[in-house]
Design a protein around this nucleic acid. Structure first.
Length: 212
DNA sequence: ACGGGGATCGGCT
DNA sequence: GCCGATCCCCGTA
C-alpha cells in the first residue's frame, strides 16, 4: 500500500508541508474513493508561531493539534471546516493546513457537493475541499496512518512526469506573523487558490514525486 | 478578472 | 459580544 506512515509526518513541519505537495488525499466512503492531489499547503509551527492555533496552548478546540503526528486536526471557522495534519513530536502543536487539491477521483460527488460549480471551485480553498470530501469535526482526531475513512498516499500514477516547482509565499488570511513565508504551492497549477493575487500564469499541470 | 462587503457560528474574552 | 487559518455574490471593466 502506498499510504504515508507516521515516520513521514514526524519530520519537521516545513519539510512535511513541502513533501505533501503532489501526494493524494483520499476520502473513502462506503467503498467509494474521493480524492485529490495536494497542490497548496501552509505550515503552522508550534507555540512560538503567533498565527498557530496552538500558540496559546491546548484548549478543547485545538487539543488534537497536540496529538501524535499523523492525526487529523479539523477546526471550524466562519461556519465551515478546515483540515490540518499534525506533525513533529507529540505535544509540539505543529500542523500543516491543506489549502487546495486538484480533483482526482470521485469528481461526480465533488461536483454535487459543491453545487455543480466549475471544477476550479470544487477544492480550491481549505473549506471548499472539506465540503467536497465531506470532512467535518467528526473526523477531528482521526489517525491518518490507520483510518479507513481518510488517509494520504503516494500515487504511482502521478509520480513519473515532469518535475514541478514549489513556490513560497506568506500565509493567507492571518494578521499575526503575516510576513513568514510558510505557504507552499505547486507553481502554475490551476487549482491553487489566490491565483491572480500571486501573479500566476495559468498553465497545464504535471506531477512528480518531490525529491528533497 | 478583480475587489469589496455580508453571511454565518463555534469558541473564547 | 466579538472575531476568525472563509466563501459567495454582486458590483465594475
Amino acid at each position: 500500500m502506498n499510504r504515508l506512515n507516521q515516520t513521514f509526518y514526524e519530520q519537521a513541519t516545513v519539510s512535511v508541508a513541502r513533501q505533501l505537495l503532489g501526494k493524494l488525499l483520499v476520502r473513502a466512503e462506503g467503498g467509494i474513493r474521493i480524492s485529490g492531489i495536494v497542490v497548496e499547503v501552509e505550515a503552522y509551527l508550534s507555540s512560538d508561531d503567533a498565527a498557530s492555533h496552538s500558540h496559546r496552548g491546548p484548549k478543547p478546540r485545538n487539543q488534537t493539534m497536540f496529538a501524535r503526528s499523523g492525526h487529523l486536526y479539523v477546526y471550524s471557522i466562519h461556519a465551515k471546516y478546515c483540515l490540518n495534519i499534525v506533525t513533529e513530536a507529540a505535544g509540539s502543536g505543529a500542523a500543516v493546513l491543506i489549502r487546495a487539491l486538484e480533483p482526482w477521483e470521485g469528481t461526480r460527488i465533488m461536483a454535487q457537493r459543491r453545487s455543480n460549480g466549475s471544477p476550479r471551485q470544487w477544492t480550491t480553498g481549505p473549506a471548499r475541499l472539506c465540503q467536497a470530501l465531506d470532512v467535518d469535526r467528526s473526523l477531528d482526531g482521526v489517525d491518518l496512518c490507520s483510518s479507513d475513512q481518510i488517509w494520504l498516499e503516494r500515487s504511482p500514477r502521478i509520480t513519473t512526469q515532469i518535475p514541478w516547482k514549489i513556490t513560497t509565499s506568506p500565509r493567507i488570511g492571518i494578521s499575526s506573523a503575516a510576513d513568514l513565508p510558510l505557504r507552499f504551492f505547486i507553481d502554475g497549477n490551476r487549482f491553487v487558490s489566490g491565483l491572480a493575487r500571486l501573479h500566476q500564469q495559468p498553465r497545464t499541470w504535471a506531477f512528480q514525486d518531490h525529491v528533497s
